[in-house]
Design a protein around this nucleic acid. Structure first.
Lengths: 168, 168
DNA sequence: TATTGTTATACTCTATAACTATA
DNA sequence: TATAGTTATAGAGTATAACAATA
């Protein structure tokens, strides 16, 4: 099987001075764990038939009604994407959309009772996923992780460009 | 912070007992920061014409030659995806592929001199991105973040570990 | 028959622009 | 003219299965 698969191709020599372990880069590690976490959440939500984004929209709406545009800005979701998200949520009667009387271009989005119940269930599902993902971390460590992550500069502004690779 | 645009739609009431802040969930925060980090890396690499995965493959290969299959397992990349990654790297002469004489089904993948130089430049680019992303964290805090992330349980937690017996 | 690498296909996300109805 | 929402389309990314050549 796979145990003796690298018979003639030498294993990666981590002692080689030319070797740079990609996983030792904090950015790579963070991107990877983030991706895995998203995948795990997505998997846990499959039975509920919603994606992580649907869940986040529902949880956000638990605080009250918002204009569709504001919601998109808050979540960093493109308006055209938000439309399809809200469509499926509205089809399931988890949210409701109505025109803003004060400005008929706007949609006021609000959660339904069924939606609020779904949000609570989904939140619990997130909790179970976290219990699994962070099982090896103490409550204190989880808190530390959270506060450190919160301090990562997420805003994308300044480009640090790299020289093209070609030129020999 | 919403009152200027949401005239009649009330802003989200974070004090509402029904409100659950999605970002307060550690899993959501981790997934988000991971995604942003990946996007930032991808942006920084655009001028070099490679994606983060190309870069990671190159850095991995800095340690020596590997079979294509082993490389895919280590990186958690599907074989069919790895093919296209390696094709573009080979077109730029950053890596080389040759048949394994001991098992002609296998490809031995190795980095070229130009590839090694590119890997070093790419690694430096990762460093600059990290200096930007983690500017508000001390060296000690970055280390803490890394060790905590390393302890998050994910399916792909340790790609270097040998699978006991990869069943169906 | 199983494995390695490759190709082909389909499906999901995302990004963009054009369109409507209002203002 | 500008804005909120919608629709349509194309592109990247990924996942899956079928395939050829080796073992």
């Amino acid at each position: 099987m796979a145990s003796r698969s690298g018979a003639s191709a030498a294993p990666i020599d981590t002692a080689d001075p030319a070797y740079v372990d990609p996983e030792s880069r904090l950015s790579v590690l963070l991107a990877r764990r983030g991706s895995s976490t998203d995948a795990r959440i997505r998997e846990a939500l499959t039975t509920s038939g919603v994606t992580p984004r649907h869940a986040i929209v529902l949880m956000r709406l638990g605080g009250g009604q918002v204009s569709q545009r504001d919601l998109g800005v808050r979540l960093g979701v493109d308006p055209s994407v938000l439309v399809t998200l809200l469509n499926s949520l509205e089809d399931r009667e988890l949210i409701r959309r109505r025109r803003d009387p004060a400005d008929r271009r706007r949609h006021i989005v609000e959660i339904t009772d069924a939606g609020a119940r779904a949000a609570a269930r989904l939140d619990a599902a997130f909790g179970r996923v976290e219990d699994e993902l962070f099982a090896d971390l103490t409550a204190q460590e989880r808190e530390t992780l959270g506060s450190l992550l919160a301090r990562v500069r997420t805003a994308q502004a300044d480009p640090c460009a790299v020289a093209p690779d070609a030129g020999p």
